[in-house]
Write a protein that binds this DNA or RNA. Structure first.
Ligand SMILES: [Mn+2]
Ligand SMILES: [Mn+2]
Ligand SMILES: [Zn+2]
Ligand SMILES: [Zn+2]
Lengths: 171, 171
DNA sequence: TCCTTATTGCAACTGGTTTCCATTACCAAC
DNA sequence: GTTGGTAATGGAAACCAGTTGCAATAAGGA
């Protein structure tokens, strides 16, 4: 067994376990999907995945993808990525641990980050509300460093900035 | 002018100003929309709004709503609410300042909260990345106090809990 | 009041997602 | 390894939220 195959093994086993626990079956299509999803380390849409598989010569139907990605989400192998207006984007989880996103309004680039302070603060909030957290999604929209240096105009935030607003309050 | 009318005045003026700055016009339909949106202090969908207006005897078309709600968002009078799989939900902003959401996976209840630590942590992250934040959306899914006491089983989190995971790491 | 131009309603259209149903594939039991 | 019950699949049709084209209407400044 080569290293490439090995990389796909863990998610495969995880998924197999998940399927078994639900009385579902491990099929060739499901193996192919897992393999593809963990081969690419990037956000992807249903259609991205569909095209990637076609390019590889795999001929799964879109219906199959629409039926199986939700299962991958439930199994914890992939997650949905926050989007401004559409929610049709995913990313794999294994080897790509939890993080949140900064999304540039100008160039569309998405910067991934983690912040223990942030997670701790969320944890506190939940505890305070007697709420048992299971997952969360945070997206921050704004202007990235690159775009700001290129167009200084984007440095001033519109009145809708909630982060900026909270910054002001704290002063 | 009675107090009910007065409550709708401020957003109306704000919107009028916004429209003027863009060379757009204040119409009867737009007044009706604002009035309705600020009459209800709750999340709502396009259709919720449409139905509410019909019940009042107002006969705006859905197209008009689809054309105008984005303007209300741009003007800062309403905002989109985070959703697990759909993004078609809004809430008004005036008299309902920025907050984030705890969403119960069992009863669907949405608890609104604010947390300066959280906002401060976001601010830090942005500064660290040279990112200029404009807005953000945070949703935390899990089980609310009420549901947890009713069904103790929901107290243990699935493996996908990122908040729980970060809690573990911190130990 | 007149005139320009934004706004509206309706219907047609779109793209993403779901559903239906007949066929095929899994897999556990023989 | 064969068989049988059931899950999974592909393709087409349906569905749904949201968008667009267009002709009619209505702001609102001149
Ligand atoms: Mn990501
Ligand atoms: Mn809210
Ligand atoms: Zn950028
Ligand atoms: Zn609940």
């Amino acid at each position: 067994m080569n290293s490439k195959k090995h990389a796909a093994d863990e998610p495969l086993i995880t998924f197999a376990r998940f399927l078994e626990a639900r009385g579902l079956r491990m099929t060739r299509d499901r193996r192919v999907i897992i393999e593809q999803v963990f081969e690419v380390h990037a956000h992807f849409t249903m259609d991205d995945l569909f095209v990637a598989l076609r390019l590889k010569g795999e001929r799964l139907s879109k219906t199959t993808l629409y039926r199986n990605l939700p299962l991958l989400v439930e199994s914890g192998l992939i997650r949905r990525v926050p989007g401004e207006s559409s929610d049709g984007r995913f990313e794999h989880v294994l080897g790509h641990p939890h993080h949140d996103h900064l999304i540039c309004l100008e160039c569309g680039r998405e910067i991934e980050f983690t912040c223990t302070d942030l997670e701790a603060a969320q944890d506190n909030i939940c505890r305070r509300h007697g709420f048992h957290p299971v997952w969360h999604r945070l997206g921050i929209w704004g202007y990235c460093r690159r775009c700001r240096s290129r167009r200084p105009a984007t440095q001033s935030a519109p009145a809708t900035s909630c982060v900026a607003a909270s910054r002001k309050k704290e002063r």
